[in-house]
Amino acid sequence: MNTPEPFAGEVVHSPVRHHILSVLVENKSGVLARIAGLFARRGFNIYSLAVAPSERHARFSRITIVVDAESAPLEQMMGQLDKLVNVVDIWDIAPKDAVERELLLATIATDVSNRTSLLDILGRAGASIIDVDPGAVTVMLAGTPASCDEFERALEDYSSVELHRTGRLAVPRLGQELTNPERGPR
């Protein structure tokens, strides 16, 4: 039987001073490399990054980047990003003005002894079971980054957990003004 590695530290996914950049980009090859390269080159730290086609999905994709605003001034990050020709629009969303959600998937080894307690945790977190076999379950939680952190901590007691998180997506709270609403495709 495999002995799982003991959990070696604290789960800290939320940076001290994070900021969310919601970046609309042209859906062209190499765009992600341009953005990743820029951040690496200039020493801007990325906490998470999510990419998917946007509402204008034929031409544009949206990249949601959670940045460490301590690693460089936000203005500098946005100014440099804006210079990338394939970047169409940047929305800077402060955490207090954002509705943030993240998806967590975890596969947990189960047996008779731990099934009940696991169900209890899932119930409290609002997570659901999306796949089952005799030795394991895969569960899903869609929630705030903090609730995902909390759920992740609750799963620490289980010996074999394989965990995936998407990184957060964010939209401005309704009624909030965007920082740079004037830019965009013309």
């Binding site: 001034p73 203005e75 500098q76 100014g79 440099q80 804006d82 210079k83």
Partner: peptide, 8 residues
């Protein structure tokens, strides 16, 4: 003309 130079 380059916004990123301002305050860099």
């Amino acid at each position: 003309i380059d916004r990123a130079e301002l305050g860099k």
